[in-house]
């Protein structure tokens, strides 16, 4: 074995991979060759140094980052994980969310007269348009009134309109009572059935229109602080009557805390505002950019 061949075995010798025969040949050469012996010593010393090199450590938090990156799952799995949060964590969060939403809803309700009115039961003081002429349904009358604003300028007093509303209700009531009556014959039954259906649908349309009008948007919202609280109801009623408008109360009498609706023509509004300023301290809170022919005014009565 020459020096070159012996040195080719150094790695295998270092890793203990030589057969006993190979090892004895290599060792024999090293014993007789100082050059190769020195070379082997330097070679093996280098390996000792190499094996002593410390393993580099991954940076702090590396494992957590990897695990987090691997956990980016599809949305349904992430949703499931969120839903499976322990109760002791989830309950306080849900309770806080509930309180927050309730508070927001309450303030929204207090700030918005439309919402406040929408949750109240229908008030008996709602004023209605003129009584329909005989043979004409209340629904068609209201449609006509809506289509042509001119006749509304000469609306009858609110008492008369309340009477009209009562009439409408009276008409609707017997229809409901007739429903369980036994049929008198095929032709009569058909005719009565058709009439019942017509009345029922007319009544439903009438009430839904009334409700819709009461819940529509206001063109102006104002605050009124009356000088004379006791006279407020009659003063307001007189003003609206003189201007040919409609007054919708939220209670039997207008008082502090009430929200009333006044429907007047656009032309009459300046006079309404002037009269309100005579009644008390009137402040406009919100106002539409443009007014339609007939505008709806919400008045918040404050102390």
């Amino acid at each position: 074995m020459n020096c070159h061949e012996a040195r080719e075995f150094f790695s295998a010798k270092a890793d203990d991979l030589l057969t006993s025969e190979q090892e004895s040949i290599v060792d024999g050469h090293l014993r007789g060759c100082p050059g190769c012996r020195g070379e082997w010593e330097r070679f093996s010393r280098t390996l000792v140094l190499l094996h002593g090199v410390r393993e580099a450590r991954a940076p702090a938090g590396f494992a957590a980052r990897v695990i987090r990156a691997a956990e980016r799952q599809p949305w349904h799995r992430r949703l499931f994980r969120v839903l499976s949060v322990p109760l002791h964590v989830r309950l306080p969060v849900e309770a806080a969310a509930l309180v927050l939403v309730s508070t927001l809803a309450f303030f929204l309700y207090r700030q918005t007269p439309e919402l406040e009115r929408a949750v109240e039961p229908p008030t008996p003081a709602v004023t209605a348009p003129a009584a329909p002429p005989p043979g004409e349904s209340p629904d068609s009358e209201r449609l006509d009134a809506k289509a042509s604003p001119a006749p509304q300028e000469t609306l009858p007093p609110s008492e008369a309109r309340e009477g009209a509303l009562r009439d409408i209700k009276e008409k609707d009531r017997p229809v409901a009572k007739q429903e369980p009556a036994p049929p008198e014959g095929p032709a009569v039954a058909d005719r009565q059935g058709a009439e019942r259906e017509a009345r029922k649908s007319a009544g439903a349309r009438s009430e839904s229109k009334l409700a819709a009008r009461a819940q529509g948007p206001f063109h102006l919202v104002g605050r009124l602080k009356p000088r004379d609280r006791d006279a407020l109801d009659s003063q307001l009623s007189d003003v609206v009557k003189q201007l040919g408008g409609i007054l919708v109360r939220d209670a039997d009498r207008v008082r502090a805390g009430s929200i009333v609706e006044v429907v007047v023509s656009r032309e009459a509004y300046p006079r309404l505002e002037a009269r309100l300023r005579q009644i008390g301290q009137f402040t406009v809170e919100t106002r539409a950019r443009t007014f339609p022919d007939r505008l709806r005014v919400a008045l918040r009565i404050v102390e």
Partner: peptide, 10 residues
Amino acid sequence: VLAYQHRVFS
């Protein structure tokens, strides 16, 4: 990850 992080990183 915990078992192999240092070896792989190294």
